[in-house]
Amino acid sequence: MVAHARADHPDEACGIIAGPEGTGAPERHVPMTNAARSTTFYEFDSEEWKREYDRMWDNDEEVVVAYHSHTHTEAYPSRSDAKIASELGLPGAHYVLVTTKDPETAEVRSFRIADGVITEEPIEVTGAPEAVQSYKFAHTPDSTVYDCH
């Protein structure tokens, strides 16, 4: 997600991580085209989104993570992010925000968005936490929880 956000900077990047329905497991990363090609707005390309949705439908998958980047602001849902997601969004998805405003350090945060309410949630990095922020640790843990509180 961070690599995608960096690659598309200064435009906003967007995409999903799909996983088997009902498991909540994010397994298949799908970078999407930002049809808005904008530094301040994103929208899934309509045709591409339909293709990916068909694939998920056939595989009994769902959107586990819906992510997008902010290129000049915090990794926090904007007013329009929350409004659009509440009106007609992906109620089961973790909305992940990546900010690329700092060229050295990317910030990644995760939220639930429903009925206009934004709730931040912790992120647990498993598998290769050293790839993320090893400098923080004297050891290499198997998993790292980035708590939001």
């Binding site: 906003e12 967007c14 999903i16 999407m32 808005a36 904008s38 530094t39 301040t40 707005f41 994103y42 929208e43 899934f44 309509s46 989104w49 339909k50 949705y53 068909d54 819906a66 997008h68 902010h70 290129t71 000049h72 602001t73 849902p77 904007s78 329009s80 992010d81 659009i84 997601a85 007609l88 969004g89 992906l90």
Partner: peptide, 11 residues
């Protein structure tokens, strides 16, 4: 026919 949220947002 398929109905989908147009996943979108902005700063």
């Amino acid at each position: 026919v398929t109905i989908l949220p147009a996943v979108a947002g902005g700063m």
